[in-house]
Write a protein that binds this DNA or RNA. Structure first.
Lengths: 216, 216
DNA sequence: TAGATTGTTAATCGATTAACAATC
DNA sequence: TAGATTGTTAATCGATTAACAATC
């Protein structure tokens, strides 16, 4: 739902989304002592076509692969991490410290992708001042002010659908550049803001439809 | 990562994933008393092209739209709900009652999409026998047995990456047809099983890459 | 009627795939 | 060398978009 992005990168969205899968597997191989990898081996593991993996590797690798040998595992991992921003650190805030928001605050895995959630916001008085996953919860009224002061670039929205647009507006007022939206609602934003939707209903749509097709 | 699905429906994956957005908005309009909707109006709201919404509506609607008037809101909602399986009830189990799993167990929104999580599984002794969101937690050893007995078709995986494949195998042994995988790892499955990946890293890849392109 | 919106047919665009020469 | 794997160039395929006649 967010194609109007003038900052589209040279690598396709589809390829970009495959990278974390490759990366995870490459790290596993590296730990197993595998020093070079070839596209056919990776393709087989993921049940993808060789040529697709080859193109993906070519798109991400700064060093050309060696015929017969493939790519140096370490270098490929480094290039992918670079592409995925793992070596940067981007500060983020999260709005909506409910059950989903709380789960994300407790989850430690974002650090590996260069995302550092530094604060959470909510409107429920009983949550304010508390901490979840070591992150303090502030009142949503101070959202844009704090984002602006701390130069936050990423906002994570885990509030109910009805409040999503309001929270979104406050984030943008605070200078947020990219929004990760878990609320099941379309957000209205200026063209220069990236909205990445994580809509579980969209995902369920595929599951349900498949079951209907298959079994009725 | 899951193209080899022989049960592909007539409607494209992309269109299917747009449906929940349309549906949510249509319901909102309906509550506001709007009795008919046209593709151009919806397109404008979502910043999509008119023709794309028109095609999507044509793909889902059982009744043709009326030139000048558009579609009857109620009928369109009904057709979309039908397509998305909202009128069915599919039983599901969830494996991994940690923070993310717990959040999903507590979330009430899946019922609207015909998904009914009837039980949860974990290996941590302190969790077994307890309830989260009204769902009882059983030991993972009984996963395939219970799935088989209760004819469960959907499995939700929220265990750590290392355990994902094991849990997946047990689900398939228990007769599960579709898997919603939140673990950041590729699952190896037979071709007739649908795996829908909800990989947050894949999502973050887009966000991070955008920020790098834009601001370095 | 005039005009908005529809459905249909054809064009475009980009991702995937195929074919093959280059190379270690 | 022979053969596996690479990078390159061209073909295919499907989603999106454009153009336009049909219709209320």
């Amino acid at each position: 739902m967010d194609k109007n992005n003038p900052y589209a990168s040279l690598i396709s969205v589809q390829a970009l989304q495959r990278m974390p899968y490759y990366l995870e597997y490459l790290k596993k191989l590296k730990n197993g002592g595998v020093e070079t990898v070839s596209a056919p081996v990776i393709a087989k593991h993921f049940k993808l076509k060789e040529i697709q993996v080859r193109k993906d590797f070519a798109a991400v690798s700064t060093i050309k692969g060696k015929p017969r040998a493939g790519f140096v595992t370490d270098e490929l991992i480094y290039n992918m991490e670079e592409l995925l921003g793992c070596h940067n650190v981007n500060k983020a805030v999260l709005a909506g410290a409910g059950s989903l928001g709380g789960a994300l605050l407790s989850y430690g895995g974002f650090a590996a992708y260069g995302i550092d959630i530094i604060a959470a916001f909510d409107i429920r008085e009983d949550l304010i001042g508390k901490e979840i996953g070591g992150k303090k919860i502030f009142h949503a009224d101070s959202l844009s002010e704090i984002c602006g002061k701390l130069k936050i670039r990423i906002g994570i929205i885990t509030v109910p659908a009805e409040q999503a647009q309001t929270v979104c507006d406050r984030m943008i007022a605070g200078g947020i550049q990219a929004i990760w939206n878990f609320a099941p609602r379309h957000l209205n934003t200026p063209d220069n803001i990236l909205v990445q939707n994580e809509n579980m209903a969209s995902s369920l749509a595929l599951l349900s439809n498949h079951l209907i097709e298959k079994l009725g």
